[in-house]
Simulated scan of single mutants.
Amino acid sequence: MTPDPVERYFAAVNAEDWAAIRDVFAPDAELRTVGAPTRRGVDEIAAHFPAVLAALPVHHDEPTRVVAAGTVVTVEIRFEGRTAAGAPVAFDAVDVFDLTPDGTAIAKLSTWYDTAAVARMVR
């Protein structure tokens, strides 16, 4: 079973509901993405998603496997989308969520994928 904050995270990203993204992260949360500086706090995290996904007006993160161990949740994802020019973009990724001790919000998210391959597809 996928914990509620993780389900709400994927629903918000897929719907581009950036207000809802703010609600799933703890106020002092961290977002670590391969090849990018760590984002700290809800404001930096919420600003990250529309900036990164601007190049991919069509996008969908599909969780394919969820492994939960206490407040740590690892999710394998299949990303599929299209660039503004219509070029397909598809890749696999892994997200590691650290939830708050009470399990109600995301305290830290680490996202892992082949950034070089994705950059080639987006260009």
Rank of each mutant, 00 (worst) to 15 (best):
R65M: 05
I45Y: 06
A84D: 03
V42R: 15
V118R: 15
A105G: 03
P57T: 00
D102Y: 03
V66S: 08
Y9L: 03
V75T: 03
F79M: 07
L53V: 02
D98C: 04
A15N: 05
V52A: 15
V42F: 01
A15K: 09
A117G: 15
A85D: 15
L31V: 02
R65A: 09
V73R: 02
R22D: 11
Y113V: 07
R22F: 01
G81F: 08
V73M: 06
R65E: 14
D95P: 06
V58R: 14
W112Q: 12
L109H: 00
L53R: 09
T83D: 09
E7L: 10
V89I: 04
R120M: 06
D95H: 14
N14Q: 04
R32P: 04
V96H: 04
A68V: 07
T38H: 12
I106S: 01
G103W: 03
R120K: 14
M121H: 11
H48C: 08
W112E: 05
V6H: 07
A47H: 04
V89H: 08
A69V: 10
L56E: 06
A55S: 12
H48E: 06
I106W: 03
V122N: 09
E16T: 12
R8F: 10
L99T: 01
T74Y: 00
A69G: 10
A87N: 12
L56K: 09
D92T: 14
T64S: 05
W18T: 01
R8E: 02
R22T: 02
V52W: 14
T115W: 02
L53D: 04
L53F: 15
G70V: 10
W112T: 08
T100A: 09
V34W: 08
A119R: 12
L56Y: 05
I77Q: 01
A105L: 11
F49E: 01
P5D: 03
A29P: 05
D98M: 10
P37C: 06
N14Y: 13
A15V: 05
Y9E: 01
D114V: 11
R40I: 07
T64P: 00
E16Y: 12
T33E: 14
V96N: 03
T83F: 05
T100N: 06
E80C: 12
Y9Q: 06
V96P: 02
E62K: 09
R32F: 12
A20C: 01
T83E: 08
L31P: 00
H60A: 13
A69Y: 13
A55V: 09
D43I: 07
A87D: 13
A20D: 10
P27T: 00
A26I: 03
A54E: 15
R8W: 05
A116D: 13
N14V: 02
V72W: 01
H59L: 14
A85W: 08
A84F: 08
F25A: 00
V13E: 11
A36I: 09
R8T: 07
V52E: 10
R82H: 14
R39D: 02
D23P: 01
L53C: 04
A68N: 02
R22Y: 04
P88H: 00
T111C: 13
H59W: 07
E62C: 06
F91N: 02
V67H: 05
